[in-house]
Write a protein that binds this DNA or RNA. Structure first.
Lengths: 325, 325
DNA sequence: CTGTTAGCGCTTTCAT
DNA sequence: ATGAAAGCGCTAACAG
């Protein structure tokens, strides 16, 4: 027998000897309603006793808005670091009564409109920008916050932007301080990463005039790039991330170069492999816990109609100095 | 103005000059209903023209079941490879009209019952096992498929189990074939990974009697483990994954050992850093595309009440031979 | 302070 | 072959 009748608020009401309205008021702590502590307790008892869980569908249907925070995951590798952040974000939101749900898959497979129209989420997070029409449609449909984690500055939702620019800047800064005049930028091979790579590169450009070369994740082909940089007189490389940095290291090695004497390298992310590299990789990390907390606060504020808090990006990004640069 | 009235099936009906029931029949291709191609087309036109998207909430409320496949993501690092699989799974399910949604966060933060009772998903996937009570409750509530991606064999849902055991077996097999008599198993430091590590180790044990040592992701401490293995006469190491393998490599290097002459190493996953390692790492990969397709087929079958297909695990797991072993 | 009531948008008998 | 109507479980006016 498939459906032993779901427990509804009516069941709770009956057991507590009150009306369904009262149950609703108690469970939602509806403001502007004064419920006597006695009934309140009785309702809570009954609900707990029955193992009652409200139907999200019914509530959403009624209120026109769900408690879901929908996060659109792009089809490119988002990395363990970001995955970690999403986990933290999820727990932080749960504490606020919001359900974090991630939907992976490129926009082509399923029009994103289909997804959010179906879910009617309280907020939608995305890594990439939405078109203005899309944003407009979502807001019109009652989505409280529509925000792109990356995307051009100055747009709505800019508050949440992970300061990618700062990452590149920190890399260049570190290399400059350690005496490197001519810098190179190791750009990722995967075109899907461009959205991250561009702002990072821009950050490095703000401090230096790096020679940009694309570095595939392959020792032999990375070696070609490294040879090119050497010919240019480049002595320090800002890599898009740790994996690209590892490729640069491998390329330098096949050329018989010594790191960091001949070529210094700095990555991004501090993946486990970074500290195990030869030599151990200097890199830039983001404080994922802090980032998640800030995202959560912003979302909760927006859903509640309050203004977003601000976060000093400086404390978010840190250089981990090891031996490669 | 927040809510310019959502477009409902009534709007579509009006525009098409039919009743809401007919709209529903057309859009759901309800079997046992014969709709004239003419009206059918008119309804489809109207729906498309209005940009109609059905309300998941209303449909769920009515049918008592949503089209969501809920995947519970554990709080331990699940890795890029698995992330990739989930993306593929999502697109495969989308093609079948199912919405894949991932909920990260440990079970402690939010009782999982709260999540699934709210969503009433068509299926629930998890990496770890559910308790029998939990499983029972979910099935009773109408969840078509409850399945653990790992978890003891012989349970319901065993069909979906990623053959972790086979991974360890392949590693040991490869090392044996290349002439290694005494094997070691490099166990991960992070206790949360135990659920993956145990079956892998068991697989290796099926072929050999590996000396198990825990290897932290740190060259110095990994060196201690390596020294121990050397004293035991071990010449080949099966590592829990590529990161641990990288640590073993680093440990061997600090001891002045040569890989694979002094110590052969084989990892799991084929992360990008593996091919860039010194020396490039031999490893075992899972065909993520195949896995995702199989998961999707199984889920769709279960939701549709059909029996699950089977998958030969042999084609799923492959050894990538490089220089480390 | 608590109960009555009217839907939210959809599916699905049962009539026509 | 199509339509009318009854709710799914919940919330929010409005009464009492």
């Amino acid at each position: 027998m498939p459906d032993p009748r779901r427990i509804t608020s009516a069941d709770v009401a009956r057991r507590a000897g009150v009306s369904r309205a009262t149950v609703s008021y108690v469970l939602n702590a509806t403001p502007g309603q004064s419920i006597s502590p006695a009934t309140r307790d009785r309702v809570l008892q009954a609900a707990a006793g029955l193992g009652y869980a409200p139907s999200a569908a019914a509530r959403t249907l009624r209120t026109g808005r769900s408690d879901v925070v929908l996060c659109l995951i792009p089809d490119w590798p988002i990395g363990n670091e970001m995955g970690n952040t999403l986990g933290n974000l999820s727990t932080a939101l749960a504490r606020e009564g919001l359900t974090f749900l991630a939907h992976p898959g490129s926009r082509d497979d399923r029009p994103i409109a289909e997804v959010w129209k179906a879910i009617t989420p309280a907020a939608v997070l995305s890594f990439t920008d939405f078109s203005d029409d899309e944003t407009e449609a979502m807001r019109a449909a009652g989505v409280a916050l529509v925000v792109a984690l990356l995307g051009r500055a100055g747009r709505h939702g800019r508050e949440l932007e992970v300061p990618q620019t700062l990452i590149g800047r920190r890399q260049a800064d570190h290399l400059s301080r350690t005496g490197h005049q001519r810098l190179g930028y190791a750009y990722p091979d995967d075109p899907r990463l461009q959205i991250f790579a561009e702002p990072r590169l821009a950050g490095a450009r703000a401090l230096a005039e790096p020679v940009v070369r694309t570095v595939p994740l392959d020792a032999a082909r990375a070696a070609e790039a490294v040879a090119g940089w050497r010919a240019d007189g480049v002595t320090g490389i800002c890599a898009y991330n740790d994996e690209v940095a590892l490729a640069v290291l491998a390329g330098a090695r096949t050329l018989g170069l010594t790191t960091p004497a001949d070529l210094a390298v700095i990555g991004v992310d501090d993946i486990p492999a970074a500290r195990l590299a030869v030599p151990p990789l200097t890199t830039v990390t983001t404080d994922q816990g802090l980032l998640a907390a800030h995202l959560a606060t912003t979302i909760v504020a927006a859903v509640g109609g309050r203004p977003a808090p601000s976060l000093s990006a400086d404390e978010l990004i840190r250089v981990v100095v090891r031996e490669s640069g």
